[in-house]
C-alpha cells in the first residue's frame, strides 16, 4: 500500500494500539486522537519516527464539528490529506433498561455514535472533495445481537451501523468507501457484559467454533485490508469478525475441554 495518512479516533484503546502497529509496518502517517497527555506518547512517537512514520497527537472533541474541522485543518497541513479514517470508539458500561440514568445513556450514545457521525461527516467532506478515501467504522456484533447487559452500548452500535449504510451511499458517490466491522468477542469481553438475563458470554470462547478467540490484531489486519485501494468494490459492507461466534447453536457440540465442565 502506498503511503497514506490515517486518522484513528481512539488511539489509546487496545484496538487503537493494534491499528497503529499494523499500519506503521507499512509506514503510514498518523493523526492519533488521544485522551492521554502528550508526554505519555513521547516514546511511541520516537519509535514511530525511527520507523519512518510521522504522527501527530490530537485531543479533539469528536462530537464537535468546529473542533474536528480545526484539527483536520492543522493535521492535513502537516501530514497531507487524510485518506483513511478509522473510528474505533467503543465506550461501554453496564446499563439496564430499568435502571440506567440519562447521563450514562447519553455518554455512551454520544461517545460512540455521535462521534462516529461527526468524524464521518467532517473527514468524509474532505475526502469527497478529493474523490478519494476509505472510512472504516469499527462496531460490534452488538449492532445485531443483544448483550443483555448494556443496552445503551447496543443502541449506539445499531446507530453506527445505519451511519455506515447511509455513508456508503452518500460518500460512495464521491468515490469514498465506507465499511463496517462488527467485532466479536476478544479475551475479557465477558467482563464487559455481565448479564443475569443472557447466557451469551457463558463459555464464550468455546462458542467460537475453533475455540480460538480473536484479537485486536485480527481487527487491525481487516482494517488494513479495507484501507487499501484494491478492495475498490467493497463499500457498504457489514463485515462480522467473530470467528463464527454468532453461528453458535448447540452447547453440547462446543469444542470445550471436558475438564472445564467438571
Amino acid at each position: 500500500m502506498s503511503k497514506k495518512t490515517v486518522f484513528i479516533s481512539d488511539a489509546d484503546s487496545p484496538s487503537g494500539k493494534a491499528l497503529i502497529n499494523r499500519f506503521s509496518e507499512a509506514r503510514m502517517d498518523f493523526v492519533l486522537n488521544s485522551q492521554l497527555d502528550d508526554k505519555e506518547w513521547t516514546d511511541q512517537l520516537v519509535a514511530l519516527q525511527a520507523a519512518g512514520t510521522n504522527a501527530i497527537i490530537t485531543h479533539t472533541d469528536l462530537c464537535s464539528r468546529s473542533d474536528l474541522a480545526s484539527m483536520l485543518d492543522k493535521a492535513e497541513s502537516q501530514l497531507g490529506p487524510i485518506e483513511v479514517m478509522i473510528h474505533n470508539q467503543m465506550l461501554s458500561e453496564p446499563a439496564a433498561i430499568e435502571t440506567c440514568n440519562e447521563t450514562s445513556f447519553l455518554d455512551i450514545m454520544q461517545g460512540n455514535a455521535k462521534s462516529a457521525f461527526f468524524c464521518t461527516q467532517q473527514v468524509g467532506k474532505r475526502m469527497s472533495t478529493r474523490e478519494r478515501g476509505s472510512i472504516i467504522l469499527v462496531s460490534s456484533i452488538h449492532s445485531e445481537k443483544p448483550t443483555g447487559a448494556a443496552f445503551s452500548f447496543s443502541a449506539s452500535q445499531g446507530a453506527i451501523k445505519m451511519l455506515a449504510h447511509e455513508a456508503s451511499l452518500f460518500l460512495g458517490r464521491h468515490n469514498v468507501r465506507v465499511n463496517l466491522i462488527e467485532m466479536g468477542p476478544v479475551d475479557g469481553s465477558d467482563a464487559l457484559f455481565p448479564s443475569e438475563v443472557s447466557g451469551l458470554y457463558e463459555s464464550y470462547r468455546y462458542k467460537v467454533p475453533s475455540a480460538v478467540l480473536g484479537t485486536n490484531k485480527d481487527l487491525a489486519e481487516l482494517a488494513f485490508f479495507l484501507a487499501k485501494d484494491e478492495p475498490r468494490y467493497l463499500n457498504g459492507a457489514d463485515i462480522r469478525l467473530d470467528g463464527g461466534f454468532l453461528m453458535h447453536y448447540l452447547d453440547n457440540k462446543m469444542k470445550k475441554p471436558a475438564e472445564e465442565d467438571r
Binding site: 433498561i97 449492532s143 445481537k145 443483544p146 448483550t147 443483555g148 452500535q157 446507530a159
Partner: peptide, 14 residues
C-alpha cells in the same frame, strides 16, 4: 438503528 437494538435488548430484559 438505535431503536432496533433498544427493542431487542428490552425484550430480553423485560
Amino acid at each position: 438503528g438505535a431503536i432496533k437494538m433498544l427493542g431487542r435488548e428490552s425484550a430480553v430484559e423485560l
